[in-house]
Simulated assay, not measured.
Amino acid sequence: MKKLSIVIVFGLIISILCGCGAGKENKQKSLGDLPTVTVGCDNYSPFSFMDANGNVTGIDVELAREAFSRMGYAPEFVFINWEDKKNLLAKGSIDCIWSSFTMTDREDEYHWAGPYMRSHQVVAVNEDSDIQTLEDLEGKVMAVQSTTKPEDIIRSHDGTLPELRKVISVQKRDLIFILLSKGYVDALAAHDTSVDQFMEDSGLKFRILEEPLQTVDLGVAFDKADTRGLNIQLTDTLKEMQKDGTVKQIISKYLLNEDSYLEEE
Results as ranks from 00 to 15, higher is better:
I176K: 00
P212F: 01
E210Y: 04
A189H: 05
Q214L: 13
L204Q: 12
A225K: 13
F222I: 08
D186A: 06
R165K: 14
T160L: 06
Y184C: 12
L188Y: 05
H191K: 05
P162C: 03
S156W: 04
H157L: 13
A187W: 08
A190G: 05
A187F: 08
T193I: 06
A225C: 09
Q197F: 09
A189R: 00
P212W: 00
E200C: 08
F177H: 08
L175V: 13
A221K: 04
D217R: 11
L175E: 13
F206C: 03
R173M: 15
L188A: 04
L175I: 11
I168C: 08
I176P: 02
A189T: 02
I176M: 10
L161C: 08
R173G: 15
T215I: 14
I178N: 07
D192T: 09
E210M: 01
R165C: 09
H157Y: 13
A190L: 05
I208D: 08
Q214I: 09
V220M: 08
F206P: 01
K172P: 06
G159L: 05
S169Q: 08
L213C: 06
S181Q: 15
K172A: 12
S202I: 07
V195K: 00
S156H: 03
L175H: 11
D223F: 04
F177M: 01
G203E: 03
L218P: 03
D201I: 00
I208K: 09
L180A: 01
H157E: 15
G203W: 06
R155E: 14
A187E: 05
D152F: 15
G159I: 02
R165I: 01
P162N: 00
M199A: 11
Q197I: 07
E151M: 08
F177K: 00
D217M: 12
D158N: 13
V195I: 10
Q171L: 11
V195Y: 01
K205P: 09
F222N: 04
E163K: 10
L175K: 10
G183T: 04
D174E: 15
K182R: 15
V195H: 05
L209Q: 03
R207V: 07
I176H: 03
L204H: 14
R173F: 14
L180W: 01
Y184D: 15
Q171P: 09
M199H: 03
Y184E: 15
T160Q: 06
Y184M: 12
S194W: 00
V170H: 01
S156V: 06
